[in-house]
């Protein structure tokens, strides 16, 4: 059997995967009855529906023709996701200025067109702008400098 609609096939698998995680986790929550529904009732129901939809998509993908999945370019995606994670990890210990410079520089690596000096200037400018707007003007509780220094 050939997969004739790869986009549907993979979407279906993705739904089934989410449904499986949801239903496995929801096993631990009590179902209850209609009068006093437990915390597991609605998730179980939704998980079942999602699995069914996933199965329909997968099944259908063998019968009906559909589009192919375009090439995945994982490099820029992963670089950016990594940069975002770094920001999350660095912000509280090192402060906004450093975390922002890091995320801007790291995500700049995701594009072939970025130039180091330009990205550096951009990072510094954004850090100055953000400290000015978010910390001083809007008074959001963001640490600006490394926690050890203040």
């Amino acid at each position: 059997m050939n997969i004739r609609a790869p986009k549907d096939f993979w979407s279906g698998l993705m739904f089934i995967a989410f449904a499986a995680v949801a239903m496995l986790a929801a096993r631990g929550y009590s179902l209850g009855g209609a009068g006093k529904m437990g915390p597991g009732y609605f998730p179980m129901l939704l998980g079942g529906v999602l699995a069914l939809i996933g199965a329909i998509l997968v099944g259908r993908s063998f019968v009906i023709d559909g589009e192919r999945v375009g090439r995945l370019h994982l490099f820029p995606l992963c670089v950016i996701a990594f940069g975002v994670c770094l920001f999350g990890v660095l912000l509280e210990p090192l402060g906004l200025v450093i975390a922002l410079i890091v995320v801007v520089l790291v995500s700049a690596l995701a594009s072939r067109e970025s130039r180091p000096v330009e990205a550096g200037v951009l990072a510094l400018a954004l850090a100055a702008f953000s400290v000015g707007v978010f910390v001083y003007a809007l008074r959001l509780p963001l640490p600006v400098w490394p926690a050890l220094l203040s």
Binding site: I98, I101, S150
Partner: peptide, 15 residues
């Protein structure tokens, strides 16, 4: 080299 130079953090005044 340039990238790594840019990533070096700077110091702030000590309380």
């Amino acid at each position: 080299l340039l990238w790594s130079a840019l990533l070096i953090p700077f110091a702030a005044p000590q309380a």
